[in-house]
Design a protein around this nucleic acid. Sequence first.
DNA 1: ACTCTTTTCGCAAACGTTTGAAATAACCTC
DNA 2: GAGGTTATTTCAAACGTTTGCGAAAAGAGT
Lengths: 339, 339
Amino acid sequence: MRGHQVTIKDIAKILHISPSTVSRALKDHPDINPQTKKNVQDLAKKLKYKPNQVALNLLQKESKLIGVIVPEIIHYFFSTIISGIEKIANESGYHIIIAQSNESYHKEVENIQALLSSNIDGFIITMAKTTLNFDHFKNVAEIGVPMVFVDRTCDKVTADKVLVDDFDGAYKATKHLIENGCKNIIHLAGPQNLDIGIQRKEGFLAALNDSNISIGDYSIQICDTHDHALKLIPEVLSRHNNIDGIFAVNDLTAIGAMKAVKSINKKVPDDIAVCGFTNSFISYIADPELTTVDQKGFEMGQHAARMLLKRIQSDENYGPVTTILNTDLIIRKSSLKKK
Amino acid sequence: MRGHQVTIKDIAKILHISPSTVSRALKDHPDINPQTKKNVQDLAKKLKYKPNQVALNLLQKESKLIGVIVPEIIHYFFSTIISGIEKIANESGYHIIIAQSNESYHKEVENIQALLSSNIDGFIITMAKTTLNFDHFKNVAEIGVPMVFVDRTCDKVTADKVLVDDFDGAYKATKHLIENGCKNIIHLAGPQNLDIGIQRKEGFLAALNDSNISIGDYSIQICDTHDHALKLIPEVLSRHNNIDGIFAVNDLTAIGAMKAVKSINKKVPDDIAVCGFTNSFISYIADPELTTVDQKGFEMGQHAARMLLKRIQSDENYGPVTTILNTDLIIRKSSLKKK
DNA sequence: ACTCTTTTCGCAAACGTTTGAAATAACCTC
DNA sequence: GAGGTTATTTCAAACGTTTGCGAAAAGAGT
């Protein structure tokens, strides 16, 4: 199997000196004779000595490993977050271990436990949709492992957070639909146990309110997947055929909605304007191209990583920090009605 | 900072027994007094004792960590591979460390080095497009760390490989285009230093050949990105306006080509049929929906993980294994001309 | 020649866990 | 009650590295 990696002990034995001397020689410790130093360093280079990280981890109680838990990496938004994290982490010599919860609470708990025992230096987490109990997070906090929540956060846990201004993004998107002639907009909302679900809904409602548009009991539909939208929209439209705008909690749902609209021979955007949230890759591919709110995944990932590293490297115990990023409204064809 | 995780020593101290007794009690060793066992196990549960993986790694020279190096996780295909790997790895108590090469040779080398010193148990790698020198892989092989290549492979390195039958996939796709009335198909090919680029091109050529369709000097265009296709296709079509089919080396390029075709007011599929390769998510979202070859990323990831685990856990030194998966042609609207 | 300082190095402990071997204590047998 | 067996526990080493402290040797100063 695996060939023996060269260790400090090997070098010590060859040179007939002690491991401690080798260790010091390798780090240019002033106590070591220059000649010994040279011998050690030359031999180390020749033998391609690489320090054993695991031994260092055990000793120094840091693994230079960041645990990242996301629902699913196949989603563009999450993979952009991960890319942002990886970039910053790598710059500081850290690596990331990725675990997916698949939106399952139990998998999330499992992942946390498993990564904890790997002596992870910190966590960056986007909660699963199904997570309603937060004991596993509280446990992490108690043990004292730093933790940053990204995008989906919750008040019940004390931790750093980075999120986008969902309320404002939703507000801007809804305002935009109104300004483009929509008089009866519905919102396909996310689960109301997640802040982002709540905030985007509230932003939507606020925009309607500010424009004095009345809200029907059908104006909010809990629906946040492509397939659900595909089924739901025809039903809703058959009951309320004066709907002329849809604001979806994410791009995939928006695209599902667009497909559904087209399937019943209505036109996007002229009959029904559609706007999504995330600005994922598919919004650019969709037909018509999807107006959406840029959620800045890469930036969020970068911020989260910076915040985590700061906390890992700090000795003080400063209070939790929340970073809120601005969103940008990306206007494309799916929302621009002919006037 | 970080609170003290409960260790075996802690339990030993509390119970006034030795760490070794605690260790054995926790694993139900027959030598231990049932009462002692119960005391230990109860206390361990109460204190939420979790074995320290790092200490185990050091002792047993395995980290239960698999290094995964891919070009970019934001690409659907790579993230499905990763998901497949993660699933199998998790089932065996392994976790995955992900590093992105961003298609850069240097980043790839860096990643390999960094992960090696973290005592990775093995690698699963999809090479960067720009990798032409393979010394870093050979180095891994010499040290004796198991390694599996996925999708993009190279003959120069002795290692396990899992790939799809690119030749056959391309052949089937091209045949399908021909059967649907295409008489002048071009191929948007990948880089010819990668096996997949070569194989898909060869499959394309073989299908044309078997149907006695002549090949022009413009029939193969090196072009494997969305944006390149967007620029290239209008040029090519203006010079050869009898082209009636496009087979692209990947979905994104196919979609770029479709957009380009539509931009010059030709119709997909009636004027020009289009077929991609990968069956990524966007192929389903595209308009018209894209005919493509299913590259089975998830299955490839699973296979790769199984092959790696087998090699990690095996003592024998069996020769390199190559697994070739079949592709499926997924027929959608972009290739079905009205007859 | 004696102490004092400086230079250079090694010892030992530590991180958390496992495990072969040794130790202790209790019990049994003849 | 000597010898033997069994049950239970502890010791010590090991994994690779770092680091405070002590030690040895050499040189300097008087």
